[in-house]
Design a protein around this nucleic acid. Sequence first.
DNA 1: TTAAAGGTACGACAAATTTCGTACGATGCA
DNA 2: TGCATCGTACGAAATTTGTCGTACCTTTAA
Lengths: 129, 129
Amino acid sequence: MKSTQTENNLPEPTKAELEILQVLWEFGPSTVRFVNDKLNEQREVNYTSTLKQMQILTEKGILKRDESQMKHIYIPVEAEEKTKVQLLDRFVNTLYKGSASKLMMQLLGNEKTSKKEIEEIKRLLDSMD
Amino acid sequence: MKSTQTENNLPEPTKAELEILQVLWEFGPSTVRFVNDKLNEQREVNYTSTLKQMQILTEKGILKRDESQMKHIYIPVEAEEKTKVQLLDRFVNTLYKGSASKLMMQLLGNEKTSKKEIEEIKRLLDSMD
DNA sequence: TTAAAGGTACGACAAATTTCGTACGATGCA
DNA sequence: TGCATCGTACGAAATTTGTCGTACCTTTAA
């Protein structure tokens, strides 16, 4: 039994791939140039590196693209939410054996989680009945 | 601003490294043989591969070991909680811009999070004043 | 109508991570 | 004592991930 495939089949996006997805999520469908510029606000990356990554993401089926113009427009295949849910799911399973409440406890115990956040969470829970 | 270094400096454990940490967390200080056997319950790994990984983890300062016996005993340097908190922190920052409540929403929206879990979380929140 | 600017394709290199083969030292026991 | 067994050390191959150089096509504007 070599497969780690669970019920979903998306290849796990790597770190560099996630960076690109974040830009597309935040700003919507974009050209390589645009994404590369955004990335370069944070760190230095060559244009062709970004291009290559986005091509790979497309091969993997994580992005699709509109090639009708010379400047291809790249679009995430799955919605931001869906992808994040998957990543979160994997995270919970890996580190907390699937227990969301265990994760919560750490979140709440973490000093970095502000009072405000905690209040927000409480409100959230109360409002869901 | 190029640094992603927050106040902690532990090198991010890789996937294979995490697997090993999980075993040590669950069963306590162990030999390579033991860890390797556990890993092989899930997937095939050569003994020396596991050994090497654990040696690397030791070099990185993530594990320490007792060499007083021929069978070295490996022990995580940091407590399970501390490491998980760091990983969680990184996860929240990367995917949710640091907002714990955003993460919560996904957790609660996720069908996989059972009613039971949600009840558990509510109880948790109520009990923390 | 051509030269510069800007686009994609893609092979190849670099770096990080993972796996493993081989060497060799300790231990145990017939 | 000798040898099978089990341990560690460690270089190096294999794989995965990340980066970039170069070739070449399109568009634009003088």
